[in-house]
Design a protein around this nucleic acid. Structure first.
Lengths: 107, 107
DNA sequence: AACTATTATCGTAATATTGCGTTATATAGA
DNA sequence: TCTATATAACGCAATATTACGATAATAGTT
């Protein structure tokens, strides 16, 4: 069907999946890396920095905003994107807990 | 187009995206959580544990194997899936580095 | 008001993903 | 060999994603 059965999974599982989705495309990895490395949250030059069209990048930004991991400050005529610290922390905590839960197996 | 332009991104960016993809669907989160919590790598009962059909789960397992984060040991007539420790560590390291690179912004 | 720069949205096309029923395959044990 | 069980593979349908050009929207500037 192509439609994820979100209702049969827990809130937590769905949230983890969403947070992971932020990093599940190389363009978004590049965007997030760029934003995290440029503390001044320089922005629209993402279009110059990445080998994708402006409209494609805009869509990735929209998805990242939906997830909440970035936010955009309007500074006409530009929009300055930067990492949303709270959600970034949430991701750090979430993946930390998830990945540290595993303590090896007895195979 | 629906076709990710992987060639324009770095190896690293693509790998991160792939690792994230392992967690970017609630069913896969559930599978990985199950496997990481059950150290004995009990297996086929994933079908019982999850509200999805056997064939659907098998496909998610296939994707997880492609990424490398799980591996299957054949113990006829079962196949025993468990976390691939090396790749799990790789994920831990990768997301750790990525998420810790950000030190706040000056917005 | 017209112009400019920047970003968002729309429409479209191609491909990927998700899910499931069905079928095939493999193996242990009777 | 036959049977039951377990997993994989196939094929289909529906939806989602990715990408881009074109167009619109926004907000300063002149």
């Amino acid at each position: 069907m192509g439609v994820t059965k979100t209702e049969v999974f827990s809130e937590k599982e769905n949230r983890i999946a969403d947070l992971a989705k932020a990093f599940a495309h190389p363009a978004r990895v590049a965007i997030l890396t760029y934003l995290s490395e440029n503390r001044t949250c320089i922005c629209g030059d993402l279009v110059e920095a990445l080998p994708l069209s402006q409209s494609t990048i805009s869509q990735h930004l929209k998805e990242l905003r939906r997830i909440g991991i970035i936010k955009g400050n309007i500074e006409p005529p530009k929009v300055c994107y930067c990492i949303n610290e709270e959600v970034w922390q949430e991701a750090k905590l979430t993946f930390g807990l998830l990945l540290n839960a595993y303590q090896g197996c007895g195979c």
